[in-house]
């Protein structure tokens, strides 16, 4: 090999070094594993609550594919949002804005993972769950990330639908169809998303303002946001009672979900009456509790079913 060829190779290696610098951990971070864990959990509950028994191998495969799909949409989100992620303190250490993964690599990773998860779901599970998974990825990556996030204060309200689909996909993976129950599960997450994200937006208001993202607190201020948090939490409280009111969950779920919702509402009221200097701390508590709340509500569903079956 001549010196010129060696020099050319070195230049090429330098050019790809940034793109190739991402470690496996960076690629895992690209899939937002914490968000993915909630997606996997709610998807699994949708699968468990379906009125048919599913072979464990099929159930595990479906949950893995839901997780891959969620990871794919997260990677596409990080590809598109690299510019605003770099401005926000909360997100500037993510692999793309930090320069550990090339933006184009994040796009390719997201696209390949999307194709792989949807096609595998179609081949291994069924077409309905595959179509729902494809729609969810499209909704999160295109409708929420590209169209809504930088344009409207209703970004996370409408975009929240993407995060609400996993239990529907889980149910569809088991049954091959969609019924009233998964639609209620969808509505629970849909109603939960605004208070969850607006509580975070209150805490990270300066971040969102700096990045020019029109979150509700940035555009309409803290008071209007807290009023909306209260209204959505009230609507959420009614929605989480629907499984009990419609008769597909028992008293155990009804009481548990009622208590959990009362605590959530109580925290929101405390947020509304807290003085300005303590508002951020209270909003942080509402945000943290909202994650625990969703976990509890969805965990209560199969536990209630187990108790009803006499176990």
């Amino acid at each position: 090999m001549s010196q010129t060829q060696k020099a050319e190779l070195k230049i090429n290696a330098d050019q790809v070094s940034l793109a190739d610098a991402g470690s496996a951990a960076d690629f895992i971070a690209l899939m937002k594993p914490r968000v993915m864990s909630l997606v996997v959990f709610t998807g699994l509950i949708g699968l468990i609550m379906a009125p048919v028994s599913v072979h464990p191998v099929l159930a595990v495969s479906a949950v893995i594919l839901i997780a891959l799909g969620a990871g794919a949409s997260a990677a596409l989100n990080m590809w598109y949002d690299a510019d605003i992620d770099a401005v926000m303190a909360r997100t500037k250490t993510r692999p793309v804005p930090a320069g550990r993964i090339d933006q184009e690599d994040a796009l390719m990773f997201g696209l390949w993972m999307s194709g792989l998860s949807v096609l595998s779901m179609a081949v291994l599970i069924n077409y309905v769950s595959a179509a729902l998974l494809a729609f969810t990825i499209f909704f999160y990556a295109v409708i929420y990330t590209m169209l809504l996030k930088r344009r409207t204060t209703q970004n996370i309200v409408i975009g929240g639908a993407a995060g609400a689909f996993p239990p529907v996909i889980g149910w569809a993976a088991a049954t091959g169809s969609v019924a009233v129950e998964p639609i209620i599960f969808f509505l629970i997450i849909f109603m939960w998303t605004p208070p969850h994200f607006w509580a975070l937006a209150l805490v990270k208001n300066d971040d969102y303002r700096a990045a020019n993202v029109p979150m509700l607190p940035v555009v309409h201020g803290a008071t209007a946001t807290i009023r909306q948090i209260l209204l959505y939490t009230l609507a959420l409280t009614i929605t989480v009672m629907l499984p009990y009111l419609l008769g597909f969950s028992g008293l155990f779920y009804g009481v548990g979900a009622g208590v959990a919702s009362a605590i959530f509402l109580g925290l929101c009221v405390l947020l509304a009456i807290s003085p300005a200097e303590r508002r951020n701390r209270m909003a942080g508590m509402v945000f943290a509790y909202s994650i625990f709340y969703l976990f509890i509500v969805f965990a209560l569903l199969p536990i209630d079913r187990l108790m009803a079956s006499g176990l």
């Binding site: 060696k6 190779l9 070195k10 070094s17 610098a21």
Partner: peptide, 19 residues
């Protein structure tokens, strides 16, 4: 090395390939 890869980058690439 001759291609401009540092031992750390090579290790990282190997780990990524294994995963």
């Amino acid at each position: 090395d001759a291609n401009g890869w540092t031992p750390e980058l090579l290790k990282q690439r190997r780990r990524r390939a294994v995963i």
